[in-house]
């Protein structure tokens, strides 16, 4: 059943992605001021959305783990955070390429840029910590705590960086932030479609990661059982 969902979602995501790529690369006209580089927005913005949402959902799963002490929630939190980190890095890399073209530098130390980078560094620390702890329950506990600290900290970073006089990011353009008028619907709609395509792929990745976590936990259990019974001999 789970395999079928994975395959189905992957197929939908891939089909959407191909169709979107066709629209984005061949269908849409160039933007007046940015020329063709503006197309990065179709991956940059959904990448950031999925990344930040993922960190948030990962935090929620960590809290549920701390309440319920069920390792499945920990596996879910880890999988989601890992995938979210990948998308957040996409956001940073595409943003950097766009910045080179538009601002003339690869890295502008712009407020949101720095905030996202710090966020990524914190969650890289989270994933490194997971590798450093062998005992599953201890790993789950400690990483859940780091996730909570990291997310609270991200909020502080977000606030602090707003006050640092370095904002040069374009303001919000999407209709749900501005109420419309900043971006032509012809250009805006493919962005949502691409966000949907990438979301499908993100969910597929999370499901595959969860399966890996399940399998590795099972192997771990078998190894312990074997070890215990061998000792008994």
């Amino acid at each position: 059943m789970r395999n079928r969902i994975i395959v189905l979602l992957a197929a939908i995501g891939a089909a959407l992605l191909v169709w979107n790529l066709h629209t984005i690369l061949l269908g849409l006209p160039d933007e007046t001021r940015q020329d063709m580089i503006f197309r990065i927005i179709y991956f940059h913005v959904p990448g950031g959305m999925i990344g930040l949402t993922g960190f948030g959902v990962g935090l929620a799963c960590s809290v549920v783990y701390l309440v319920k002490k069920d390792l499945w929630w920990d596996a879910l939190a880890a999988s989601i955070t890992e995938v979210a980190l990948a998308f957040a890095l996409t956001n940073l890399v595409t943003g950097s390429i766009w910045g080179r073209q538009q601002w003339g530098v690869w890295w502008a130390w712009d407020a949101r840029l720095t905030g996202m980078l710090i966020c990524c560094v914190v969650f890289v620390g989270y994933l490194m910590l997971r590798r450093a702890v062998d005992e599953p329950n201890q790993r789950a506990r400690l990483s859940a705590v780091v996730s909570i600290f990291g997310t609270v900290n991200a909020w502080f970073v977000y606030k602090a960086i707003d006050w640092f006089p370095r904002l040069q990011h374009p303001g919000p353009v999407l209709t749900f932030r501005t109420g419309g008028g900043r971006m032509d619907p012809v250009l805006e709609h493919p962005l949502y479609w691409n966000a949907l395509a990438l979301l499908c792929l993100a969910i597929v990745m999370v499901m595959i990661r969860i399966r890996q976590e399940d399998v590795s936990r099972e192997i771990d259990l078998l190894r312990r059982t074997a070890h215990a019974s061998l000792k008994g001999l």
Binding site: I118, V122, G125, L129, V133, Q138
Partner: peptide
């Protein structure tokens, strides 16, 4: 948090400095 980790000295700066940033 890191008191029982094998690679405590490596993990600590990685976790502590980003959190101190604000």
């Amino acid at each position: 948090l890191t008191v029982n980790l094998r690679i405590r000295e490596l993990m600590l700066p990685m976790l502590v400095y980003p959190l101190m940033i604000p």
